[in-house]
């Protein structure tokens, strides 16, 4: 038990450190001394403004997005009982992408773009349900339906890309690989993450049973029908929030739950909060690197995420099997 507490202490510190690093290292170097002064309200106005109004929203947006995706991914993997599942596997992001690209094509921006992403996600959720008729009971069918719908959305996205004028293409591509450049202070999304985590923790022990299949969970008294509906709605909602916030950042939702399992085990009561902290930290670091590596050129954060994630993950996998 104490070792688990230590684990969360460490993960919490890593999370804080990643945010602090992100505040320190921006496109414009601000020393830690100045950062400290800013925090204490004694810094000069310009650096204070950079830290508070540009870097802090950026860092927090990255953290919240990473947390949302990792949490949604961990739940989605249990819902379809498949370790290859990620938050996008049921086509939630695909639906959001089609609607967002359509909005961009039509020259719509700002809040309408956010609304478009939301509408697309909800549409995808509805479509998955209509096509499978039931969410609980047949994880295999749910997964295959989701994959089929996701391919459909992907084809539609490509179609929109191919007919879009050149000047909108860059924005579209950035959105598709994940983009944090339009970050605002993610108060609402942060609340969604916190509430989502609380809700998921309320059924975390039941997830330990559901991974063994529906019958096994039922035999130990779990209302599997209700549990799977909760899983579906909550993970879809979290994914939609993340996608609306930052576009389709891949990899976090797939890899972070596996990283946690490799390092710290399979109990969902630890896995879910652990994924939030790990996913958040990882995306914050990726975001910092994406702005810092080829300064002043900025890379899409989704690409950096994948590039730093793959070696870490393969290292862990190798270490575990060896």
């Amino acid at each position: 038990m104490t070792s688990r507490l230590n684990l969360f202490l460490i993960l919490g510190l890593v999370a804080l450190a990643s945010i602090a690093f992100s505040l320190l290292q921006g496109s414009d170097l601000i020393s830690s001394y100045q950062l400290l002064k800013t925090v204490l309200h004694q810094g000069d106005d310009l650096s204070a403004e950079i830290v508070l109004f540009i870097r802090l929203p950026h860092a927090l947006t990255a953290f919240v997005t990473g947390g949302l995706l990792a949490l949604a991914g961990a739940m989605m993997q249990v819902l379809v009982r498949n370790p290859l599942a990620d938050p996008y596997v049921l086509g939630i992001s695909g639906g959001a992408a089609v609607m967002t690209l359509l909005c961009m094509l039509l020259g719509i921006s700002g809040y309408w773009l956010t609304g478009g992403a939301w509408a697309g996600s909800l549409l995808a959720m509805l479509l998955v349900f209509l096509c499978t008729k039931k969410i609980a009971g047949q994880p295999q069918q749910l997964l295959l339906t989701g994959v089929a719908l996701a391919s459909g959305f992907s084809a539609l996205s490509s179609l929109i890309l191919s007919i879009s004028p050149d000047h909108t293409l860059r924005g579209m591509l950035f959105w598709l690989v994940g983009d944090l450049s339009e970050a605002h202070l993610p108060v609402l999304e942060g609340c969604v993450l916190l509430i989502g985590l609380m809700m998921s923790l309320s059924f975390a022990r039941e997830l330990n049973l559901l991974v063994r299949g529906e019958k096994a969970a039922k035999a130990l008294g779990v209302n599997t029908h209700r549990l799977q509906w909760k899983l579906y709605l909550l993970s879809s909602f979290l994914t939609a929030t993340a996608v609306t916030l930052a576009g389709c950042i891949g990899f976090v939702g797939l890899i972070v739950p596996h990283m946690f399992r490799l390092l710290f085990g399979y109990d969902h009561r630890f896995l879910l909060p652990g994924c939030v902290l790990m996913g958040g930290s990882l995306l914050t670091i990726a975001d910092m690197l994406s702005r810092r590596l080829f300064f002043p050129q900025q890379l899409p954060v989704g690409i950096v995420m994948v590039l730093i994630g793959i070696p870490i993950f393969i290292f862990l996998l190798q270490k575990k099997t060896a």
Partner: peptide, 15 residues
């Protein structure tokens, strides 16, 4: 006790 079991993810014996 079921005839057979399925596990998509591992666990320790005690867990």
């Amino acid at each position: 006790l079921f005839q057979d079991t399925q596990e998509s993810f591992s666990q320790t014996v005690q867990e």
